[in-house]
Nucleic acid binder design. Structure first.
Length: 321
DNA sequence: AAACGGACCAACCGCTCACAG
DNA sequence: ACTGTGAGCGGTTGGTCCGTT
């Protein structure tokens, strides 16, 4: 199909920067009649623009709920985290950032975040050190996630991506299609301080199970940087909400995160391979240890959540179907 | 002061997908 | 099943700004 048909037909249409008059015409029209058929907007407004151009101008500039100005640290962290899972799916990433457009996010990524990662020696595509490979991750990661048909996902990132996409479908009406986004400050704040700005050295707690896995490894940091920490970086940030909500559905936008956890926990509990008694012991130990190490309350919860993964003896987490 | 180059960002282009006829 | 159209998305471009030489 190629070029948008309405733009091909009318090659006399104006291009380039929008004038304030054009903006006013479009703004007045949309605020009065709402968003309908974009292709008819030029005719109805008298604008010498194609419908596609009108749509873009509204979405990227005129929409009243747009957030202007610099990206906050929370937004930056969120973009990094989501990009690690979703890749260049700017629209999906932007849908989690109230008031930001895909264009905003894309420009911010290309002009700042991408360079920042490169500067830190991280591959902007994988968010891992330049010399790390996906194979290494699969090889070293102690948790294997199976697809519904029992075939393991090729990597943690693939599994997380799949889970996120399922979630995105579920929450689409709440996140993507709303004209006015419901801003939930909790959602963004939950990312704060839980995710390293690098998107790499996330808050990945080393559980007893992990320590077993790491026996003989003189450098725990090396294990931490095996490329598998992308999973905890997504899972740790919402524990507080999850614990309070009992892993149930909620209207909070942070249910993305609880969804991820629910997925894993449902899966682990349904797994016949889970070593449950060891799991409870580990949980108790973790709480006690957390107190002993003067961890704060959040860290305890982190530990509990982490247990849900680390306690799976069979190294399997089957996503629920 | 002028030239240059990099950063930023608005807008365009080309493609896919969904849907109606 | 096929075709045309509209909507949406990601990649890219080009203009402007600003700092540096």
């Amino acid at each position: 199909m190629g070029r948008h048909s309405s733009c091909v037909k009318h090659n006399k249409l104006k291009k380039g920067i929008w004038s304030p008059e054009e903006d006013e015409k479009l703004y007045n029209y949309i605020t009065r009649f709402g968003i309908g058929c974009w292709s008819s907007v030029p005719k109805l407004t008298g604008l010498q623009r194609c419908g596609k151009s009108c749509r873009l101008r509204w979405i990227n500039y005129l929409r009243p709920d747009l957030k202007r100005g610099m990206f906050s640290q929370e937004e930056e962290d969120l973009i990094l985290t989501l990009h690690e899972v979703l890749g260049n799916r700017w629209a999906q990433i932007a849908a989690q950032l109230p008031g930001r457009t895909d264009n905003d996010v894309k420009n911010f990524w290309n002009s700042y975040l991408k360079k920042k990662l490169i500067k830190q020696g991280l591959d902007p595509n994988t968010h891992k050190p330049m010399n790390k490979t996906e194979e290494n991750c699969t090889e070293k990661c102690p948790v294997q996630i199976l697809e519904p048909d029992g075939i393991p996902y090729s990597s943690i990132s693939d599994a997380m991506r799949q889970i996120f996409e399922e979630q995105t479908e579920i929450s689409r009406e709440n996140f993507v299609n709303k004209q006015v986004y419901e801003y939930d400050p909790l959602f963004l704040s939950e990312f704060q301080a839980k995710v390293d700005p690098t998107g790499y050295h996330s808050n990945f707690l080393i559980t007893p199970y992990d320590q077993n896995q790491m026996e003989g490894n003189p450098n725990p940091n090396q294990n931490q940087g095996s490329g598998c920490d992308s999973l905890p970086s997504l899972l740790n940030f919402d524990h507080g909400y999850i614990m309070e909500s009992g892993f149930s559905n909620s209207t909070s936008t942070s249910r993305i995160n609880s969804f991820l956890m629910n997925k894993a926990i449902e899966s682990s509990s349904s797994s016949s391979h889970m070593n449950s008694h060891a799991g409870f012991d580990q949980m108790n130990n973790l709480i006690e240890n957390a107190a002993a190490y003067s961890w704060d309350a959040e860290s305890k919860l982190d530990s509990i959540i982490q247990f849900q993964f680390s306690g799976i003896k069979s190294e399997e987490i089957k996503p629920s179907i």
